[in-house]
Amino acid sequence: MHTQDFPQLASIEVIEQGFESLGYICSTKIATAVFLAFALRKPILVEGPPGVGKTELAKTAAELLQVPLIRLQCYEGLDEAKALYEWKYGKQLLYTQVLKEKLGDLLQGAQGLAESVERLHQFGDIFYSEEFLEPRPLLKAMQQERGAILLIDEVDKSDYEFESMLLEILSDYQVSIPEIGTIKASVSPMVFLTSNNTRDISDALKRRCLHLYIPFPSVELEERIVRSRVPDIDQVLRRQLVAFVHSLRDLDLKKTPAISETIDWARSLLLLHAHQLDEEIIHNTLNVLLKFEDDINTASAGLGELLRSPRRA
């Protein structure tokens, strides 16, 4: 993908505005990463705690550029047959059957074995050819004519072999298929990899990527995010709820509430017609924010404290 085709990515400011118009409020750092990834044709490895909008970033980028988003969810045991390509075995078997029937015509008039074999060699063999190739997400992303956003989600969950396989794709935007040769992307896709840091990604992979760490947002940024996602919510309530979530993040919780939870909570509060945070309403809706019984108990115990001294005050 080239810059001149996509005025949406002309500069960092333009990217920021573009993302904002689609409801994704990003920090300058994120916009810088997108800009650089695009200008330098490098993949971005996005790391950060779950729920800070790593996957959303790729989705929004696809929306902004109006190119298809091709997503590959990684898991243990993901191999190239599921990620890259697979042969259409059924059709290949049929093809051999068809071939056998045609064999008589092909070999007609051939004198002796040697000539038959020669004829056979002259016959174009398409058994291993692109006709019988079933593209999987990675190959598909490279075949898109207008370019694409390729999202390789949770790459830390995949195996080391898969990671090594990615190297060729990420640095040269090409794949090697032993039976055919190398297939190169006509328009290189823009690649986002996300990782939750459940294990260390190999240095070789990291080296090929821009590294973007998205932390939990600041209070101001999170307020802007909530405003853009849940526009109907009252301003006072918004400020209160964001401050409350931030003070929750300071507690020792099993699963710290992320942006997605803040948004969900804001939506639920809106549905309940709440105008202000009080202990009762928090108590009733805490399960939207916290996903473990232990966490809910921890938070409930100090609820009065948390409400009285929000971080900002």
Binding site: T28, T32, A33, L36, D203, K206, R207, H211
Partner: peptide, 9 residues
């Protein structure tokens, strides 16, 4: 920011 992205892992 840009350098940090390119250099840090």
């Amino acid at each position: 920011d840009g350098l940090a992205m390119a250099l840090a892992k």
